[in-house]
Simulated assay, not measured.
Amino acid sequence: MALTFALDPRIGPGLRDGVLALWADVSNAGGAVGFVPPVTVDDIRPEWVKHLAAMSDGRTRLLVGYDEEGAVAATVFITYNTHRLMRHWVWLYTVMVHPSHQGKGYGRDLMAAAEDAVRGFGGIDAIRLTCRGGTGVDRFYASCGYKEVGRVPGAIRVAPGDDRDDIVMLLPLV
């Protein structure tokens, strides 16, 4: 069954708890979403608060995918570039699909929904994202049409002695 997507859903306790649980589950399954396992919801909460502040300021929008039971199953944060010379593209952050739903095509559905949402914003020529090297997720993004446009070797320190590349990827919309 397909996910149902909502752009800018109403923020409340259910959404908060769903996003925090998703973020913890993805992180603890080894997902490269800003944390290294093991993490708890309480570890992630400060990052959620930062995202909430950015959403409140109008700098970031949230796209949520709900499963057939109405649970938060996927998310992506879409952030406007605030530099006056770069407002024609956006960033995607914290792209997540719950581990129990991986392998069902939901990641591709999420990326397509994000692209559709951004196309609806008007005036946006491209979507950029970064991903952690060594995870293979760059191949997934490439399969969704993104091209690698930059790489910073060893920019992400997962653990002492385990540095990963920070890969910049771009999806032109025009």
Rank of each mutant, 00 (worst) to 15 (best):
P13E: 10
F140I: 03
V39I: 13
C131A: 01
V41T: 15
R157W: 08
A142P: 09
F5M: 11
Y93V: 04
N81P: 02
A71I: 05
P46G: 05
D165L: 07
H83K: 11
W91D: 05
D57K: 10
G136R: 05
A54E: 03
R84Y: 12
L170H: 11
R139Q: 12
R87D: 02
T94W: 15
G161V: 00
A24Y: 11
A53P: 06
V26H: 08
P160A: 03
A126Q: 02
L173N: 09
V19M: 14
M1P: 12
A142V: 08
G120L: 14
R151I: 06
Y106V: 00
T130C: 03
E115K: 15
P99L: 07
V76N: 00
P172L: 10
S27I: 02
H88D: 13
I124H: 04
D166E: 04
R128I: 01
L110E: 02
I124G: 01
R87F: 10
Q102C: 01
V137R: 03
R151Q: 06
C144V: 11
V168Q: 10
G107Y: 07
L20H: 08
D25M: 05
Y146E: 09
V97N: 02
T82W: 14
R61P: 06
D8L: 14
R16L: 09
T79G: 02
H98K: 08
R87K: 13
T82F: 11
I156F: 10
V72N: 07
G30V: 00
R108L: 03
I127A: 01
E69N: 06
D138E: 14
D17M: 05
D42H: 15
L62D: 02
C131Q: 01
A159W: 07
S27A: 06
V41R: 15
G120T: 08
T135C: 02
P38K: 14
F77V: 00
K147F: 15
R157E: 07
V19T: 04
G134W: 07
Y106P: 00
I156D: 02
D165G: 01
E47G: 09
G30M: 01
F140C: 06
L20C: 06
L92S: 03
G58I: 02
A54R: 13
V90D: 04
I167M: 06
L173R: 10
G145Q: 11
L63F: 12
W89F: 15
H98W: 13
R151S: 02
A126R: 04
G105Y: 00
A53R: 15
V95K: 12
